[in-house]
Structures are given as structure tokens and as C-alpha cells.
């Protein structure tokens, strides 16, 4: 915990270096583990609350509205296509550093689901809200959101 380099300019001890040296093993959870295992098999899994007739993607173990538990029999494979609902072209990374190559992020309403799905929009020349998009898979799938490379306009 020493003074930062920036102090040298004004001969002060205005700031001191520091960090939180911690690391985590986050629990994927009942529903997200099923979802990740599905991605590994090139399947997109959602689940449906029958009472509300509402399909969650990613799946959840409960319906946030009627608060019913969504058991094993509520999961289903959903289509790998959807509608582009919004998108943005990113010029800075999440830390605020300028990107060499800007890229697109999107909100996609996957067919037969009632939620919007956040992922990259790739290989799409003229994106337009309302266009049809299709999932593009990574050949090297490990059971994570990166098993999908993103969605592409079709």
C-alpha cells in the first residue's frame, strides 16, 4: 500500500495503491447448469411456466410472476432463430479502452421464447431491427455462453 506514481508530480501522498485480491468460484445453479450442458450439445434450452404461458431463456427454477417452481419437466429446446430487437456498435471495451475493431452487441427475441437474449451480432452487413437472425456455434464447446459465437442476420 504505497503512494501512487501520480503523487510524485505534486510531492503529496494524496493517493495510495490498493486492490481487493479475491477470486470467486460462482455456482452456476440448477437451471443455468442445464442451460450450459445444453449449449455443449448445440441445444438452446429454455423453460416454460404453464400457468403464465411464459418461456424463459435462459431458464429459471421459478417463475418470477406467479412464483411457481419450474421443475425438470418444464425445460425444452427452443429454436436457434429469432428476431433482432436492438443492437449497438461498440467502440470501447468494458473497461473504457478503445477497441481496434468495433463490433456489434444485440438483443434477440429467440423464437418461441418471451424474454430477450443478449449476445453478439456477427457477420451481418446491414443490421436492422426486426430482421431474422440465426445462432452461430463455436466448434470448441466447453459449456459456457461462448459455445455460441453469436447470432447472424439471415
Amino acid at each position: 500500500m504505497l503512494p501512487t506514481k501520480r503523487n510524485a508530480k505534486h510531492n503529496s501522498v494524496r493517493e495510495v495503491e490498493g486492490s481487493f485480491p479475491i477470486h470467486f468460484h460462482y455456482t452456476a445453479g440448477i437451471s443455468t447448469e442445464k442451460f450450459f450442458l445444453g449449449l455443449k450439445e448445440k441445444k438452446i434450452l429454455g423453460n416454460t411456466c404453464a400457468t403464465c404461458n411464459f418461456t424463459y431463456l435462459p431458464p429459471k427454477i421459478f417463475c418470477e410472476d406467479c412464483f411457481a417452481e419450474l421443475g425438470n419437466d418444464t425445460y425444452k429446446e427452443v429454436p436457434q432463430t429469432g428476431i433482432l430487437e436492438s443492437y449497438t456498435e461498440i467502440y470501447y471495451d468494458f473497461r473504457g479502452d478503445k477497441l481496434e475493431t468495433p463490433y456489434f452487441l444485440a438483443l434477440i427475441k429467440v423464437d418461441e421464447t418471451d424474454t430477450m437474449f443478449y449476445h453478439k451480432l456477427i457477420d451481418t452487413e446491414n443490421p436492422k431491427i426486426g430482421m431474422k437472425v440465426s445462432a452461430i456455434w463455436n466448434d470448441d464447446r466447453k459449456g459456457s455462453i461462448h459455445d455460441l459465437n453469436g447470432f447472424k442476420g439471415i
Binding site: 443455468t32 435462459p58 461498440i90 470501447y92 468494458f94 473504457g96 452487441l105
Partner: peptide, 14 residues
């Protein structure tokens, strides 16, 4: 969300 969104590195501007 740690599982899905953080892996795509979202920030508020996006």
C-alpha cells in the same frame, strides 16, 4: 449476472 452477461463483457454505455 456472472454466468452469462459478464462473460460478454457488458458495460452500461452498451
Amino acid at each position: 449476472d456472472n454466468m452469462i452477461e459478464r462473460n460478454l463483457g457488458p458495460n452500461l454505455v452498451w
